[in-house]
Amino acid sequence: MRLNLRTIWKMIRELSGDDAYERYLKNFHKLHAHDEQHECDTPLSKAEFFKQWQDEKWQGIKRCC
C-alpha cells in the first residue's frame, strides 16, 4: 500500500511537471557522464530551466475540444 501511494505521488508529480527539473538534471548527467572531454555547460538553474520548459511546452496545438 505504501509503495502504491508513493508510485501514485510520483506519477502525479511527473504528469504535472513538478519533477521536470529533477528529470532534466538526471538526463543532463546521463548525457554528459561518458564524455569527459566534452566542454559542456553547467546545467541550468531551476528558475532558468523552468522558464524554457514552460515556454517550449506551449508551442503548437496542445489542447483540443
Binding site: M11, E14, L15, Y24, N27, F28, L31, E56, K62, R63, C64, C65
Partner: peptide, 24 residues
C-alpha cells in the same frame, strides 16, 4: 530531453487524455 522523451505509458496516457478531452 526536451520534447522527445521516452515516457512511462501511464504518464503518456495522462497527457494524451488531458489534451484530447475538452468541453466538446
Amino acid at each position: 530531453g526536451r520534447d522527445f522523451i521516452p515516457t512511462h505509458k501511464w504518464i503518456v496516457f495522462g497527457h494524451h487524455f488531458a489534451a484530447i478531452a475538452g468541453p466538446g
